[in-house]
Design a protein around this nucleic acid. Structure first.
Length: 575
DNA sequence: GCCGTTTTCGGCCCGACTGTTTTCAGTCG
């Protein structure tokens, strides 16, 4: 069975783990991880890259990795991997998932105690054998047991939106402390990743002691895992790890840059610093040669010292942002205030919780010029999908509402029409033609193979009455994988047919993923930031979509709903 | 395993914290 890019990335990560356990060269291990990261953010059609030999041209991919990736794509397996797996107990890699357990300790427990899996590790700890080993002790043994006990919670990622409250509360508390000059949340949260593994807080202060004292006793903390001079780590309910680092004010912006990451971005920045005779760390620059090491009074100063303009955190993913900054080609990123409306929203007519009027009022409150109502179509019966009669009644109601002048916003009548299994749509053309806006989405038959699913979606995109492709992969973050679909081909179809692809802004969808937008926009595909609101309050979800759009390098002119009403109506009617 | 105005071998980003040590290895980010 063949693997897709995501599956191959997982295999490369597995190889890296196995090599670690084998005691391999750390740089070789890094190369496998780097290959995995590249595949995860790949937007080209993988098959085309393999066929043309262009895969080995990608940074970090050489002949060896390109060859292995091609084999995995074709066969889904690799002799090299089979041999590697056979050389180690199959339960060993799982031990690496326990905090504090790395390859060296895992190997020693295997070789000296015969520990080959988590169950064996737990038994060895409970019998006190681990604490007796040289280099281990009671605390290590207890930490391993806690790690095994909590491995589900500790290994979990968290939706960006679900940790936002913790961030807001802690930042407000930190900033209120008299010893604190500045406080920021860094890490993947600051980079607007759709999910985060942990939270990183950074504080500028000359008196770290009282800050640490305050931090480690906050409500909701279930475990303090580290308490040092400049760094403390805690776990809050749900297993989320929260790190706090306190640095002197003069180092704050170096530390903020460092802990914002990503790792790939930081590596590239440090290499760039070295080219300029500067060694770079979270503490600042150190002159390697004759050069003088500059300080930083803002984060922009850190970049300026390396001959770069400030790079927005969302772009710091090692995706060419440094090259773009150097060439003066950083985009003017989309902002929430650029939006003038949205197209995909539900009402009580299907599975929404707010009425048409409540939705219009909420749009007015946001100052929007237009609001698309796109309730479910008849096949989505589970969601109260509208039969043709009810849809036509809604069209009339919307027309009447617009004529009444009760709201400033122009309500657009639409539908989130189901893309049926064969790629046809859930309403006949003469009905769709009566709508202002047609969003087409997949809601059922998600188990199709990649070829069939891609053909199905492409057929919908090619339908002349469709404006926007809704949530193009169907993923639910941390809950359901995307269906199998070749997004490169979907993007190409949208470009060829002048269609818009939705950026579904529901915090659990954020679909299409940020990694695909830059290339899609370069191909001329328009983006539509849609809240997919099922309640009037959900219109505000667009800010999550904007966050993802920014990660995808999108500028206002690449997003349909930044345009004024007249332009939007013209675009919608040209079909 | 990757990569190249330090080129085809020998490098590859940097530092804090912990536990178990008595100077440091391992892990983590």
């Amino acid at each position: 069975m063949s693997l897709d890019a995501h599956g191959i990335a997982e295999v490369l990560d597995e190889i890296a783990r196995l090599l670690e356990l084998s005691g391999e060269n750390p740089f070789k291990i890094r190369a496998y991880h780097a290959g995995a990261r590249l595949l995860e953010t790949l937007t080209d059609d993988l098959d085309a890259l393999i066929a043309s030999g262009a895969l080995a041209e990608k940074p970090g991919i050489g002949e060896a990795l390109a060859d292995k990736i091609a084999k995995l794509r074709k066969d889904g397996r690799l002799d090299f991997l089979d041999r590697l797996r056979a050389s180690l107990p199959p339960g060993l890699p799982a031990i690496l998932g326990i905090p504090g357990m790395g390859p060296k300790k895992t190997r020693r427990l295997w070789q000296e105690l015969g520990v080959v899996d988590l169950a064996g590790l737990q038994a060895a700890c409970e019998q006190g054998k681990v604490a007796e080993l040289k280099g281990f002790g009671e605390k290590t043994q207890a930490a391993i047991l806690a790690g095994i006990r909590n491995r589900e919670a500790y290994g979990k990622r968290h939706l960006w939106a679900s940790v936002e409250g913790v961030v807001t509360t802690l930042l407000a508390g930190l900033r209120a402390l008299p010893q604190v000059a500045r406080a920021e949340a860094a890490g993947s949260f600051r980079r607007n990743r759709e999910t985060v593994g942990d939270l990183d807080f950074l504080v500028a202060s000359d008196e770290p002691g009282p800050v640490m004292d305050w931090f480690t006793v906050q409500p909701g903390i279930v475990e303090v895992t580290a308490r040092g001079q400049t760094k403390s780590s805690v776990r809050v309910e749900g297993g989320l790890q929260v790190d706090l680092r306190v640095v002197p004010p003069a180092q704050f912006f170096f530390a903020l840059h460092h802990f914002t990451g990503s790792k790939e971005h930081n590596v590239a920045m440090r290499q760039r610093a070295l080219q300029r005779g500067l060694s770079m760390s979270e503490w600042g620059f150190t002159a390697v040669g004759a050069a003088e090491a500059p300080g930083a009074a803002t984060e922009a100063d850190v970049f300026r010292a390396l001959g770069l303009p400030w790079i927005p955190p969302e772009l710091r993913e090692g995706q060419g942002e440094i090259e773009a900054a150097e060439g003066g080609a950083l985009p003017r990123l989309l902002e929430v205030g650029d939006l003038r409306g949205a197209f995909h929203n539900h009402t009580t007519a299907s599975d929404g919780k707010s009425t048409l009027e409540q939705m219009a009022a909420a749009a007015d409150a946001l100052g929007w010029e237009y609001l698309g109502i796109s309730d479910h179509s008849r096949t989505s019966a589970y969601a109260g999908g509208l039969e043709v009669e009810r849809l036509l009644a809604q069209v009339s109601a919307i027309r009447a509402l617009n004529a009444s002048g009760r709201f400033r916003v122009r309500v657009l009548s639409g539908s989130e029409v189901d893309i049926l299994k064969d790629g046809s749509l859930d309403y006949p053309d003469d009905i769709l033609a009566k709508l202002d806006v047609v969003v087409a989405s997949v809601h059922a038959s998600m188990q199709l193979d990649e070829e069939a699913m891609t053909a199905r979606i492409v057929r919908a995109i090619e339908h002349p009455l469709v404006h926007i492709l809704g949530h193009s992969t169907g993923r639910l973050l941390l809950q359901r994988e995307s269906y199998k679909v070749n997004l490169a081909k979907v993007v190409d179809a949208a470009a060829a047919n002048g269609k818009c692809i939705e950026l579904n802004s529901h915090p659990r969808r954020l679909d299409m993923d940020w990694t695909h937008w830059r290339r899609a926009a370069e191909k001329g595909v328009l983006c539509s930031i849609n809240p997919d609101a099922h309640h009037a309050d959900h219109l505000a979800y667009v800010r999550h979509g904007v966050a993802v759009a920014r990660k995808g390098w999108l500028t206002p002119d690449q997003v349909l709903n930044t345009r004024p009403l007249d332009d939007v109506l013209r675009w919608l009617r040209r079909r």
